[in-house]
């Protein structure tokens, strides 16, 4: 089962490599990863998605918690949560197909943020399925380049990940 784990960690050199190193060292997979400082500059928030059964996820969260630089973490998929991923996708948009791309972008509520005579660069946010569906609808033949941020997320309601 796919899980989203969000981690608050010290914003110090080496902290990220400890988290990533732990995954390779213990044979866990990281499917997506994003990390940036939080409103408190001494902390970074790292969100990753991984796949595993309950037992494996329990080990992963315990091992992560053991890292000295990790202050707190949450498995967002344990409760109601919101997840988003941002994608920039450069699409061939020439001739009659140009209008079709625009229609698709509108349907998916994306934005065209760069235009050339033959390409559109589309910005699209949503969950992973939505982003995949957009790429499918455009057709991989017409997709020139994809840059995705990886999943980020928060719990719904009052629940927060903070120190």
């Amino acid at each position: 089962m796919r899980r989203i784990i969000s981690i608050l960690m010290e914003n110090s050199p080496g902290a990220l490599s400890r988290v990533v190193g732990l995954f390779s060292q213990r044979g866990y997979n990281i499917e997506t990863l994003n990390v940036a400082p939080t409103e408190d500059e001494t902390l970074s928030r790292l969100t990753l998605t991984t796949v595993g059964d309950d037992r494996k996820i329990e080990q992963i969260t315990k091992q992560l918690n053991k890292l000295i630089d990790v202050a707190k973490l949450v498995d967002l998929t344990e409760g109601a949560h919101i997840e988003r991923e941002l994608m920039l996708v450069k699409v061939r948009a020439a001739g009659s197909y140009r209008a079709e791309v625009k229609r698709n972008v509108d349907i998916f509520r994306g934005q065209i943020i760069d235009v050339t005579p033959t390409t559109y660069t589309v910005q699209l946010a949503g969950d992973t399925d939505k982003l995949n569906a957009f790429v499918d609808s455009i057709g991989t033949d017409n997709v020139l380049e994809v840059a995705r941020t990886g999943v980020s997320g928060v719990s719904r309601g009052e629940k927060v990940l903070t120190l």
Binding site: P13, G14, S17, R18, G21, Q25, I68, D69
Partner: peptide
Amino acid sequence: GMSRPIVKHSFL
């Protein structure tokens, strides 16, 4: 980097 997987923690 070299000692990372075999230490409890490290400092530079």
